[in-house]
């Protein structure tokens, strides 16, 4: 049966509709089998390796929460020193807590030293494994268990940390954001990253069904909305320069993304919520401006030309 051939095997314990499990399954379809994977502590580590079982059909190691990147660097160094490198790719996987927060310094060291590894952050925007606590990746106004919405609070009051830009500032050859809402975009970027020598950073937006408070069936739809509203722009950096951006036709209002998630539901109930949604719309507008996300309507372009003439 085709289903049984996955290098990230079925029977793993991720929640129904988990966007992060889809990330692992798809990643292995694209990258395997000649890979070695390191995985930081987190949901994907826990659900995939309940001893004595393992969902992994490729060599895989979990050490700690913060050190998936240097463990990968050690593996890469070992392969290099013994001439076993060949075509074997080393991939480090970590959630946003591991990547943005606790393992950030270690990741920076690995990127700066030029190890030939692909680091992938699956970004579900909070510490989901420990029960939905705020991380440096949690977006503005999201309610988490440590930034709960309440009479005096609209939830998390800090914007999402811009890790891709920081990674690009390391001078690494390839940095990209992608989303499980766009499997083709994800596949293309993983392939591209693996074809490049040196440190690569990929950040993939992936849902957490209980953490975001969503209907699992809408897992991919909601991820697409994050892109279509301009809240999660998809782009590539090559050698520090932005070289591609996924353009958006008829960018949708952020409301359409927010109203499908319980983590934002307070914005639709609390007095002043409208103003907060406007602020989030402003974040999306700034993204659109910064990354030049919007596709100008052809007619509008023609009108412009006419005007200029």
């Amino acid at each position: 049966m085709a289903a049984l051939e996955d290098l990230y095997a079925s029977g793993h314990r991720a929640c129904a509709g988990c966007g992060c499990a889809l990330f692992l399954k798809t990643l292995m379809r694209v990258a395997g089998p000649d890979v070695i994977v390191t995985n930081s502590t987190g949901c994907m580590e826990v659900v995939s390796t309940p001893y004595p079982e393992s969902a992994w059909k490729v060599p895989w190691i979990h050490s700690l929460f913060e050190n998936n990147a240097p463990v990968a660097a050690g593996i890469e160094a070992a392969l290099k020193a013994t001439g076993r490198k060949g075509n074997t790719k080393v991939i480090a996987i970590g959630g946003d807590g591991a990547t943005f927060d606790i393992g950030f310094g270690l990741l920076s060291g690995v990127m700066e030293r030029g190890h030939d590894i692909l680091y992938i952050c699956y970004d579900n925007e909070a510490y989901m494994n420990t029960g939905i606590q705020r991380s440096g990746s949690t977006p503005y106004d999201a309610s988490t268990t440590t930034t709960p919405a309440g009479k005096m609070s609209f939830g998390n009051q800090r914007p999402k940390k811009n890790v891709p830009a920081i990674m690009a500032a390391h001078g690494v050859p390839y940095v990209a954001t992608t989303s499980m809402g766009y499997p083709a975009d994800f596949t293309k970027k993983v392939r591209k990253a693996l074809s490049i020598e040196g440190p690569k950073y990929l950040q993939v937006h992936a849902t957490c069904v209980p953490g975001w408070g969503i209907d699992g069936a809408l897992s991919l739809e909601i991820l697409r909305l994050a892109v279509e509203t301009g809240l999660y722009p998809l782009y590539e950096y090559e050698n520090g320069q932005i070289t591609s951006v996924k353009k958006i036709k008829n960018r949708k209002p952020v409301k359409e993304y927010l109203d499908k998630q319980k983590r934002y539901s307070h914005l639709f109930k609390m007095p002043g919520g409208d103003r907060e949604i406007e602020k989030i719309q402003h974040i999306a507008d700034l993204n659109a401006k910064h990354f030049n996300l919007d596709i100008e309507e052809k007619a509008t372009a023609k009108e412009k030309e006419a005007k200029e003439e």
Partner: peptide
Amino acid sequence: NCEYVRTESEFSAASVIQGAQAAGV
């Protein structure tokens, strides 16, 4: 035939030797 990895912290140094040892060296 030896790779020297000059890490940014002891935490990373220990992690690097862990990864390398796990890779069989």
